[in-house]
Computed example of a mutant assay.
Amino acid sequence: MKSPLLSLPGAVPAEGVDEGVAGHYGELYREQRALAEGTGFVDLSHRGVLTVTGEDRLSWLHLLVTQHVSDLPPHRATEALVLSANGHIEHALYLVDDGTTVWAHVEPGTQGALLAYLESMKFFYRVEVADRTDEFAVVHLPAGSIATVPEGVTVREAPHGRDLFLPRTELAGLAPDGPYGPPAGLLAHEALRVEGHRPRVGFETDHRTIPHELGWIGTAVHLQKGCYRGQETVARVQNLGKPPRRLVFLHLDGSEVHLPPRGTELRLAADGPEGRAVGFLTTSVRHHELGPVALALVKRNVPVDADLLADGTSAAQETVVEP
């Protein structure tokens, strides 16, 4: 679904799963600085939007996701995961309940599979699940933004900013001099996500990623709630304390020209470029202050102070998930 904001001056489309919105509008670092200062907005209209209505919506979702949502107060943001039977991450939902409806946005193109799963689990519960992507677009306002949100727009307010579920018909009216200020591209949004160590499904995950590896325990996984699919894996890893991999933040030295892409294998610098792989890059970005940085998954037993190599580029670790 192509965003009308791609027609704005300087707009350059994002790539891969994020195509359909602008990667940047011609000034990547200025856009990052604006978001960091709490101004502007990000077009996330390519993300999927689902709603759940009905009397049992919260108690029903509580049985299916990793987060404790049965008593979720209206307008309180949370996030939750859907796991496979083996505890591997399949979906991440960014949720808010407005008092009558649960609103969630999910990774681009994944809403169909998630909707099919939720529909298959309705049974006798009084719930209705709907894909609202054609009707509503997600627009992100950064933390510190003083922009006024129109009455009637559902808002999900998280520590790093506000996500608006805006009627899609209003997207074309978000000009640079509009109510939310100038637009910032997805690359700026991603740079701040990496700086904040926030994982993303499809980037920091593969077919065997479990929540402990990414530090999603606490923010998206509640350890004291009842049974849900994949809980056995979560409980086992929590009790043993040994996830096979861990998320790290990397400073990439000397990669101003060549930024190693996602999937680049990581090796111990002490072993040289021909050494065995000990992990891989998950997201690499150019940050307006930190320079080239990345998130990566490495094996749990990689020393936290070990220097790494990413396609010949030196990479210094900062611990995100303790080994």
Results as ranks from 00 to 15, higher is better:
Val278His: 00
Ala137Ser: 15
Glu289Tyr: 01
Glu195Lys: 12
Arg236His: 10
His91Tyr: 14
Phe203Pro: 00
Gly202Asn: 03
Ala270Lys: 06
His105Gly: 00
His68Gln: 15
Gly263Tyr: 06
His288Leu: 05
Ala36Asp: 12
Arg33Val: 06
Gly226His: 03
Lys242Val: 14
Gly218Thr: 01
Arg229Cys: 07
Thr100Arg: 14
Gly87Ala: 04
Lys225Asn: 05
Pro183Lys: 08
Gln224Arg: 15
Gly254Val: 00
Ala175Ser: 15
Asp163Phe: 13
Gly181Arg: 05
Phe136Met: 12
Leu247Gln: 14
Gly202Tyr: 06
Gln231Ala: 08
His197Tyr: 08
Arg236Lys: 12
Pro4Met: 09
Tyr94Gly: 00
Pro260Leu: 07
Thr319Ala: 03
Glu128Phe: 13
Ser255Trp: 01
Glu256Lys: 05
Met1Val: 12
Leu115Gly: 05
Glu265Asn: 02
Ile210Met: 09
Val153Glu: 02
Phe249Pro: 00
Arg193Leu: 07
Val102Lys: 01
Ala316Gln: 14
Ala184Phe: 01
Val65Gln: 00
Ala175Phe: 11
Glu213Pro: 13
Arg47Ile: 03
Thr219Asp: 12
Gly275Arg: 02
Gln67Tyr: 06
Val106Gly: 01
Leu118Glu: 10
Gly23Leu: 04
Glu274Gly: 11
Asp271Leu: 11
Val82Lys: 08
Glu289Pro: 01
His140Asn: 12
Pro9Thr: 04
Asp56Leu: 04
Leu93Pro: 00
Leu83Ser: 01
Arg276Gln: 13
Ala191Leu: 10
Arg30Met: 11
Arg286Ala: 03
Leu171Asn: 09
Ala188Ser: 14
Leu252Ser: 00
Val42Thr: 15
Phe123Tyr: 14
Arg76Pro: 08
Asp206Cys: 03
Lys242Thr: 15
Thr219Arg: 14
Arg47Asp: 06
Pro303Cys: 05
Leu290Ala: 10
His251Arg: 14
Asp56Trp: 02
Ala36His: 05
Thr78Gly: 11
Arg57Cys: 04
Gly215Trp: 09
Pro243Arg: 02
Gln231Trp: 03
Val65Ile: 12
Leu247Glu: 08
Phe41Met: 08
His62Ala: 09
Gly291Met: 02
Ala116His: 14
Thr39Gln: 14
Leu61Ala: 02
Gly181Trp: 02
Leu186Val: 09
Gly230Asp: 04
Ala294Ile: 02
Glu151Phe: 04
Ser120Val: 11
Glu128Met: 13
Gln67Val: 08
Pro73Glu: 02
